[in-house]
Each structure stands twice: as C-alpha cells, then as structure tokens.
Design a protein around this nucleic acid. Structure first.
Lengths: 356, 356
DNA sequence: AGTTAGCACTTGAGCGAGCCGACTGCTAAT
DNA sequence: ATTAGCAGTCGGCTCGCTCAAGTGCTAACT
C-alpha cells in the first residue's frame, strides 16, 4: 500500500500532469478500457507527442495515481487517482438530462410517506447513475411521541398506533385485561395524549416511574409506547430501498472478472447500511473509493452518499454504489440534488427545529 | 416444442421408467451435473445394467422428459421432466432441519407489522432454499376503513392516519382551511369514526354523495380517506421484500452460462409481482417451471409460490425463485409451511370472516 | 421380449504453440 | 524538455492435439 495523498503534502505535480491525470481518469470512466498514450494524443488536444505523455504517465504511475494491468498496456486509474479526480472535479455540477423533472415526477409530497419517497428516490437515482442506488427512510436520534391511538381489533386484543414527532407511524399489538369497547379505548388514548404528547423516551420513563398514571389500560399503553420508542432508538429501524442492481451488473467490470455474486451478497447482509452509519453532515456528499472503505466487502466498490433530513431531526441516507470506475461527477451531483430534495420534503413534515 | 403432458394422456411410461425419471431429476437437482447411465447404476440399487438404463433414457429423451447437452453426454431434465417430478414427489414433506424453529424465532407476532413479518419471512425462506425469496405484505381486494385520526403537524397542515380493517396503516398530508388546534382535529376524527367505521369504499362514496356530512374539515378528511381506500384497491400497494439473491447466484448455473445481470433485472422491474398476480387459492402451492411461465423474463427460472392471508380477507404472496434445477420438494414444503404460518398471524389481526 | 456385454464413435475440456496487434520503454536526435 | 524511431513485452486468439467420459449400436444371452 503506497499512500500518496492527493494533497499539498505530495511532491507537486506540474499543471500539465494534473490535467493529464484528470483526462486519463475521465477517459477511463467513459470507456472502461486502459488508456494509452497514443489515444490520449489523438482524442484530446494535448499539443504534445505520445512520447511525452508516456513520460508523464510513467511519473503518475510512480506516484501511485495510475497502474497498469501488464507491462505493455495502457494506464488504469488506481484508488488515489480517482480520489484526485474527485477532489479536483467533484464540485462540478453535472446532473443528467432532465434529472430535476424526473425527480419531481417520481416523488409525490402529498403521499406523506417517507418510505414511498425513499423507494422512488432510489429508483430515479439508479437509472440516473446506471448503478445500484440505496435510499433509507428517516429516523430521529431521539424519538418523540406525538400522539397515540388504540384501535380495538377483536376479543381482548387491540392495536396501539403511535404517531411519532416526524410523522412516522409505528404499531404494536396490545393485550387487554378484558374485552373493552372502542369508545373507552379512545378515551384512554385521548387522556394519554394530554399527558405524553411531545415527550421523549427519557421523559416517558420518568413519567412511568413517578406512578402518576393510573389504570391498567393506561399503564399497558404507556409501557408499549415506551417500548416502541426505545426500539426506535436502539434498533436500525430505517427501511432500506435498493434499486438498479441490474444497471450495476451491466457495467463491463462484471462481464468478466468481478463477481456478481459478491455484489449480491453485499445487499443481502447489511454492509451498506453499516457504511451509512457514519453519516456525513447534511448537505455534504461523501465519497468512499475502493480500498478506502472500512468494510472489507465494500473494498471492490465505491460509494457516494449523503445524509438528508432535518438538522437535529429525522435523517435518512441516500447513495449509490458501483465499481470504482464510476461516474463520480454525475453521481455526486445526483446524490446532492436528491438529498436536498428529500430534505425539503421531510422538513415539511415536522415542526421547524426552533419549535422544540 | 414437443409437448408431452405428464398425465394419463401420454403413452404410459412403465413403472421402472417412471422411477428412473424421478431418480434422474433428483440426482441432477443434487449434483447439477448431467447424469450418466453408469453413475445411475452405481449410485442407486437399480438391479439393471447401464445398457438397460441407456435404453430407458433414450425413451425418456424421445418423450421429451430429458435432453442432452451434446451427443456424448448424460441426461439433464427438461421442463416436462421437472413437471413430472413435481407432480410425483411434490406433496412429500421435506422441510429443512429446524425450519419450524427458525421461522418461530424470526417472526414476532407482537410486532403486529405485516411488513416486518414479510421481511423476516423472505429472509428465512431464502436461507432455507438457497435461492431468492420474495414476500409481499397483505392487501384486501375490498378495503374497509376501521378508524381515522387527524394529527396536527404545523401551520395549516395535518396528517391523516387511516387504520384499515386488516390493521394496516396508511397516511396522507391534508391541508387545512385554517390553523386548527389538535383538540378540534381529534373531535372531528371521533365524529367521523362514528359515521364511517367499517365502511367500504363504495359505502363511503354513497355517504359522500348524500351530502350528509357537513363541515369543511370533515369533508376534506372524508375525501382523502376515500382516496386512500380507492388507491389501495386500484394500485398494487403491497410492499415486496426480496432476499437471497446472493444464494441464488451461488448456484452453479450462474458460474458459467446464465447471466446474473438478467436475474438482477428481473428484480428491478416488476416481473415477479406480475406472476404473483394470478394468485393461487390459499393453501395451494403453485409451481411454474421455466418455459411454462407467461412472462418472458421468467422463462429461464422456476418459481414456487403460495398465497397467504385470510379467506376473503387480506392476502399476500410468498415464494421463491431459482434456476429450473431447484429443490422443488424442499421449496414447496417451505413455502407451504410459511404461507400457513403467516396466514395465522394475519388472521389474528382482523375479525374472523363470519363477523362481516 | 427384454436385458446385457462389448466396442467403436462422438464430443467437450484442457493444454501448449504460435501468431498478431497494441503499447510501452529506451535511446538518440532536436 | 520534447520528440521520432524502434526493439521488446505481453495478452488474446486460434489451431491442433490428446484425454476421459459416455453414448449408440450390434450381437449374444435368458
């Protein structure tokens, strides 16, 4: 592992070599074939001869930015080469054609369902970047209850519905001491709502400990509410939506060489969710290239992702995964745009942060 | 396309040949290698010589039950061969080890969440059959509302929560004429519940047309409720959970030959859901083998699936997909068991059918 | 009739040789 | 510092070969 950092630390690359490296990376991203000095000279207006380019490429190779499949082959970017490219060109805005329209058509605010939004977002993103896309629903670090409802099912069973602060719903079966009419259940729920509306798990626990709430049914409902909220905080309850594995597998790297099975296994377990756990700050698009990943299974791939949601509120993650030879500028632009779009929707669902 | 039906119509296969065909299919399912006459003679107590087996196999080939990759190779079952096998051995119960325990451990009734059940069911099934598993949530052909709730979000927006007869939840944003306190919203919801509890879409529409409900807010809530229910009936709102693509791609047919990309694309679009639309009666496990499928994309695969849920009530589908060389007895047993298990859970959520 | 032994024949898989084309690395000239 | 020219390297491809597995057929047997 030679570790050239793409930063000032490294012995400076003269301007022409920097430009050359960028061209090499972007050409390889486009063609998926090792790029040779002659092709570079022919296809781009470099005003130098192939021999000069060869010299420069030898230098780039020595510094670890590119490597060669074999001695007599062209250059292929290595992870630091992609990193250089991302730092240099990553901020450019390169949304796919009609991307905004496609997003607006696919995602309907009035559905009010973060799960539906996430599913559509994953679909749009996948088809935009031609790779696998992942979107999760949102979740708050600190769960608060907004309102509860108790619905009679039959005999001595009822459904406890909890509406959370971020407008997400959770449900659970509760067992009643006796068959209780719906009217009474509604009353209990209303009384409970007066008490606990807006409370966090901790506050609910305090209330419970104080014993201030009486009645068997109320206690049961409160207990289960606490359980739901603490599950919410403890477990990863975000729903994940995946789309576009087919797009990803159509990339040439999977035709020969890379194993489609490995890629599929990444989806079956929770690797991807794990990398998402280290969520970046909202509005920051994070790029993890190949070996940079902490997760061994993800090493052969790159991931571009961002957090979306309300600041200090409910947050989810949206991102894309593909071979390290992925279109970083396009991916970053698309992810950035979608994250912002979803953030708006989610923020419209809950009170603005000042209210708390 | 020669079309031998596996039924009495076909010129009778003598008993030995039937037994032989079953052995060939099951051996091929196990080993994934063309089965030869010598191996059959060696590994099974057939009490006849390889030459005789060759004669029988020639007959089986002529009748379309098996085919050969090339002239000097063993036999592999063709679709009608698998069909014969399924009809003959399909009813045998061959659950994987500890399957029941695994199911019970993975699926928690108290969660009361059909989505969570479906997700867990897909996971268990996938690992049991070593193939892709799909489970959907449930949906009623005729939606009924059980209860609604209106939750104030902020300013002039509120969340309409609809609890359906089968205990599923739906939500939608509604825009209020003016900023209305939660108390009032709760009252409106309670009034509305008196009126509409248990109603179907048609009944709600009649009510709406009658103009018997007054008040702007009530009307809005009613309108949106109708919209939710009719969406429910019109659209495919079942959530699909997939698991085990990695298992499926680890099957030898994908190592060389079959395209993993094609398989992945089947998942990205909705082919599978389409085959599920022709739901079998509950408790019937349906098997679609290769070319038998109406859907072109599914032709290279087999699908084993069953409907689960309450009779005349909410139903969902669970099934597995894999190469035509899949373990049908195991798949059918597992699907049958899981469908029955899920049915119990779903039925416990809603009033027994007589009540309606 | 049905079954079996024996044997010639077919075929895919694996292996190595050899050729071709693409590209580099190096040297020497500008 | 750049460039032309050229020898050298290497992967990919094709061809031909051999080998092992397994069949299809014929003739003998029960």
């Amino acid at each position: 592992m030679s570790e050239p950092t793409a930063n000032p630390a490294t012995p400076a690359l003269n301007t022409r070599r920097q430009a050359l490296l960028e061209i090499i990376v972007s050409d390889y991203i486009e063609t998926a074939a090792p790029v040779s000095s002659q092709q570079l000279a022919r296809r781009y207006e470099l005003r130098v001869s192939p021999a000069t380019i060869r010299n420069d490429m030898a230098e780039l190779e020595e510094m670890g930015y590119i490597s060669r499949p074999h001695t007599s082959a062209g250059g292929v970017p290595s992870d630091p080469g992609y990193r250089f490219y991302v730092e240099r060109a990553g901020q450019r805005n390169r949304l796919p054609r009609h991307f905004q329209e496609r997003v607006r058509d696919a995602i309907d605010f009035d559905e009010a369902d973060p799960a539906a939004w996430a599913r559509s977002a994953a679909r749009v993103l996948a088809s935009a970047v031609h790779n696998l896309a992942i979107a999760t629903t949102v979740k708050r670090a600190i769960a608060r209850v907004k309102q509860v409802q108790i619905v009679h099912l039959h005999d001595r069973e009822a459904l406890l519905v909890v509406v959370m602060q971020d407008a997400q719903l959770r449900q659970r079966i509760i067992h009643l001491g006796s068959d209780t009419p719906q009217d009474e259940l509604t009353q209990v729920a209303n009384r409970l709502n007066q008490l606990i509306g807006g409370m966090s798990t901790a506050e609910l626990r305090t209330l419970w400990d104080s014993g201030a709430v009486g009645g068997h049914l109320v206690t049961t409902a409160l207990t289960e509410t606490i359980r739901i909220l603490s599950d919410e905080e403890r477990k990863e309850t975000r729903e994940r939506y995946l789309n576009g594995l087919g797009h990803m597998l159509s990339q040439p790297e999977f035709q020969s060489g890379k194993s489609a099975q490995d890629a599929a296994e990444v989806l079956d377990d929770d690797s991807i969710t794990r990398i998402f756990d280290e969520s970046p700050r909202p509005a920051e698009v994070r790029v993890v290239i190949g070996q940079e990943s902490h997760d061994e299974h993800l090493r052969p791939y790159s991931v571009v992702y961002a957090t979306y949601g309300a600041p200090d509120g409910a947050t989810g993650v949206i991102g894309t995964m593909g071979p390290t030879r992925m279109d970083y500028t396009r991916s970053m632009s698309s992810v950035r745009y979608l994250a912002a779009f979803l953030s708006e929707l989610v923020q419209a669902l809950e009170p603005s942060p000042q209210w708390q």
